[in-house]
C-alpha cells in the first residue's frame, strides 16, 4: 500500500512536471525524483517480502493495509514539505525575496 501510494504520487508529479514545468520554475522535478527514488526502493522491499511470503503478500490484514496507507500518505506529505522548504529557500521566482525586502 505504501508502494502504491508513492507510485501514484510519483506519476501525478511527473504529469504535472511534464504539463506545466518545462523550465523548472516550481522545481516539481525534485518531487518527481524523490517519489520515484522512494518507489524504486519500496519496490525492492516488496519483491523481497513477496519472495518470503509468496501469495500471502497480496492478502494483507485490513489493519496492516490501513497502517501502510497512512504511512504512504505521511511519506507523500513529508515529500511535499521537503519540496516546499527547497522551493522557498531557492526561491526561483524571487517571491520570498520580494515579500521580505519590499518597501512600504
Amino acid at each position: 500500500m505504501t508502494l502504491l501510494t508513492t507510485v501514484f504520487a510519483a506519476i501525478i508529479c511527473t504529469i504535472i512536471w511534464y504539463k506545466n514545468d518545462p523550465k523548472n520554475e516550481m522545481k516539481v522535478g525534485i518531487l518527481c525524483w524523490m517519489y520515484w527514488g522512494a518507489s524504486l526502493m519500496w519496490l525492492v522491499d516488496a519483491i523481497f517480502e513477496y519472495v518470503e511470503l509468496h501469495a500471502e503478500y497480496f492478502t494483507p490484514a485490513p489493519v496492516d493495509m490501513l497502517n501502510d496507507f497512512c504511512l504512504g500518505l505521511s511519506a507523500v506529505a513529508l515529500g511535499l514539505v521537503i519540496w516546499l522548504v527547497i522551493l522557498l529557500i531557492k526561491d526561483p521566482n524571487g517571491v520570498v525575496k520580494a515579500a521580505l525586502f519590499k518597501k512600504k
Binding site: 524523490m34 520515484w36 527514488g37 515529500g79
Partner: peptide, 20 residues
C-alpha cells in the same frame, strides 16, 4: 544530480518509514 535526487529523496522517505 538526477541520481543524487533519487537516492537522497528515496532514502529520506525510507528513513521516515523506519521511524514509523
Amino acid at each position: 544530480k538526477w541520481l543524487n535526487n533519487m537516492l537522497w529523496g528515496g532514502s529520506a522517505l525510507l528513513a521516515f518509514e523506519h521511524v514509523w
